[in-house]
């Protein structure tokens, strides 16, 4: 490590770009939401939350994100544990199959669920064939399909975060616990779970904030009465040309993600203390 003032020259081009094209636009968006006729005001926020439709959207967004995170944890945790105990080669194979969806276009991934859940989709045709239902179920364009889409979108992220931490849990540790008389269940609860918490936290933050801010999936898999924050921004900006409200929603979205990240991190440091 060297000390040197010239280092700022190396950073300068990037800094300029980020200041001009990231910080400035974001600031301008946030700033306009507090601007009133005379000075700064919270009027736009009050107006926003007075509207029950907007409140509904906000609550729905949080609810769907929470549900997604929960399901991702439930599906991801045992899976990741299983992967983390595999041999290097097998683990590599599983990682490939988790990374592949991650790198595939979200449009493609959401679209695949349109094919599955659609009125003439696979699920309905199978159920019809089995005579389990009389007529096609309405599986698409509702909260159910959004959650499925989001879980599908973010599960690999959860798995990768967990595997990253779990594969560093030493096998000896588990054997040591077993030799001390712990059952498999106890080992899981007393040893593996506590040691996996950092990965769980990272994964949960990623999935939760990702779900709050996701646009493609709710846009494709949701319907007109399942608007979430991201689609609300888009509607206000591009259909209603209501820039102020769009800015308010955008700011709320930022604040919410920051707050949630902060909260989860706080919670985890308290757990560790």
């Amino acid at each position: 490590m060297k000390k040197n003032v010239y280092v700022y020259l190396l950073l300068l081009p990037g800094l300029i770009i980020l200041l001009l094209f990231l910080a400035a636009p974001l600031f301008s968006t946030v700033f306009r939401t507090f601007q009133g006729n005379e000075g700064l005001t919270l009027a736009k926020y009050i107006a926003f939350f007075k509207d029950s439709y907007n409140r509904g959207v906000y609550i729905r967004t949080l609810k769907l994100a929470l549900l997604t995170t929960l399901i991702a944890v439930i599906l991801g945790f045992p899976t990741s544990y299983y992967i983390s105990r595999l041999s290097r080669r097998a683990r590599g194979l599983y990682i490939i199959f988790a990374v592949f969806p991650l790198l595939t276009s979200p449009v493609v991934r959401s679209f695949s669920w349109m094919v599955i859940l659609g009125k003439n989709g696979i699920l309905n045709s199978i159920l019809l064939k089995l005579n389990l239902i009389e007529e096609p179920l309405r599986l698409l364009y509702n909260e159910f399909s959004i959650v499925i889409g989001l879980v599908y979108l973010f599960l690999p992220l959860m798995i990768m975060s967990l595997v990253g931490v779990m594969e560093n849990i030493d096998e000896d540790l588990i054997e040591a616990a077993e030799s001390l008389g712990a059952t498999r269940r106890e080992v899981f609860i007393r040893v593996i779970f506590p040691l996996s918490i950092p990965g769980l936290i990272v994964g949960s933050v990623l999935v939760f904030t990702g779900s709050i801010t996701a646009y493609t999936t709710p846009q494709l898999l949701g319907g007109s009465n399942t608007t979430v924050l991201a689609t609300l921004i888009y509607q206000n900006a591009m259909s209603l040309f209501d820039w102020d409200t769009a800015s308010v929603v955008a700011t709320i979205m930022i604040l919410t993600t920051v707050f949630v990240t902060f909260l989860i991190n706080k919670l985890s440091s308290r757990l560790n203390a």
Binding site: T209, I233, A250
Partner: peptide, 8 residues
């Protein structure tokens, strides 16, 4: 959030 950045 991408959507916020795009809008901004």
């Amino acid at each position: 959030p991408g959507i916020v950045f795009g809008f901004s």
